[in-house]
């Protein structure tokens, strides 16, 4: 591990000032410490933000409001999460081991780095780790990689399960910068790789994620997450789907679907959603709608199977959501 300095801050203003002097925020550190040990990440200065008062979890109106430093385990177990947004709890429990969930923060979960093996392999080309060195996955081992949103420079999937749920649920986030705050949809946090795969998010230098807000609605209770993976627990998604349905009078009034494991960012499936509105929530309708999910896919040599697995995962997630009483 490259030597670094560690500064503990007590206020958001102090944190942002420290970040302005080249500091890198650390909360749970479960991704960052690992990547620093591999020397994939080489911050010279860490800013320990764990003392900041942004650990709250509460209901505001029908919204679920989550401080960025709340831990995954706390948010998943919180009665307001389970009451208002069970989908959030489900993605968090599926998202990491219990030990990691006790440490990892919500803000850090959204900013975690990709799990492409070449990203961690210092002697392999990786445009995300070292721009201009090429992508070892596109012509190499790419069975786990993305089929949507790829470029010729990167095909790494975004690993967060929580982000898939937040995007399906139209969550927003509030960030604090030097002398200002701004809020925007979580959907706008994530970039596509394009020609700049090393730029993964839209935060400006020094900005700090303060809070996530998940709006409620009639879809929120009938919502499930299906995570297909190589083993049944504690593994990243091969393909995953978050599905939320509002059914009234035997007809789908609203549908929210987003997927993980298939895109270079968490992927909202708006065409699938549109195809469900006004239909009876049955398997035939789910299958017909799910076919829309693969529009525009670009499979690589090793991940053609995801083109078939993606719609099947969506259908099963919709069935699971439909079974919620």
């Amino acid at each position: 591990m490259i030597p670094f300095t560690l500064q503990k801050v007590l206020t958001e203003a102090e944190a942002i000032a420290a970040a302005g002097q080249g500091g890198r925020y650390i909360a749970g550190g479960t991704t960052l410490i690992d990547l620093m040990r591999e020397e994939v990440e080489r911050p010279e200065k860490l800013v320990d933000i764990n003392a900041l008062p942004i650990k709250h979890i509460r209901a505001e109106g029908g919204d679920l409001v989550i401080g960025a430093l709340a831990r995954m385990s706390e948010v998943a177990a919180h009665p307001e999460t389970q009451r208002l947004q069970p989908l959030i709890a489900e993605t968090l429990v599926e998202g990491a081991s219990p030990q990691l969930r006790n440490v990892a923060s919500i803000g850090g979960n959204l900013l975690q780095r990709c799990r492409c093996p070449f990203f961690r392999m210092l002697d392999a080309g990786c445009n995300k780790r070292a721009p201009g060195t090429g992508c070892s996955a596109i012509e190499g081992l790419n069975g786990g990689h993305a089929i949507l949103g790829t470029s010729d420079q990167c095909a790494a999937t975004h690993p967060s399960d929580l982000a898939v749920a937040l995007i399906a649920l139209d969550a927003t986030m509030r960030v604090t910068g030097p002398g200002y705050e701004r809020s925007f949809p979580v959907d706008e946090l994530f970039r596509l790789p394009g020609t700049t795969p090393h730029l993964e998010h839209t935060l400006r230098p020094g900005e700090l994620i303060a809070e996530i807000r998940v709006p409620g609605g009639p879809h929120a209770r009938r919502a499930r997450y299906l995570k297909v993976r190589d083993r049944s627990s504690y593994e990243f998604a091969v393909v995953s789907a978050a599905a939320a349905l509002h059914v009234e009078g035997g007809i789908v009034r609203d549908a929210r679907i987003a997927c993980g494991g298939v895109g270079t960012r968490p992927w909202r499936m708006r065409a699938v959603e549109r195809a469900l509105i006004g239909k009876a929530p049955d398997r035939a309708a789910f299958e017909a709608a799910a076919r829309q999910a693969t529009e525009g896919v670009k499979p690589l040599s090793g991940n053609h199977y995801k083109v078939e697995l993606l719609p099947r995962t969506i259908v099963r997630a919709l069935e699971m959501a439909g079974e919620v009483a």
Binding site: L6, K8, I26, G29, T30, I33, D34, L46, D48, N50, S73, S97, P98, Q99, L100, N102, V103
Partner: peptide
Amino acid sequence: CTILLNGQRVNACLTLAAM
């Protein structure tokens, strides 16, 4: 490397002691 840190199970390898 699992330990109880302030009563909660965590991976001791992914914690910086100074924090």
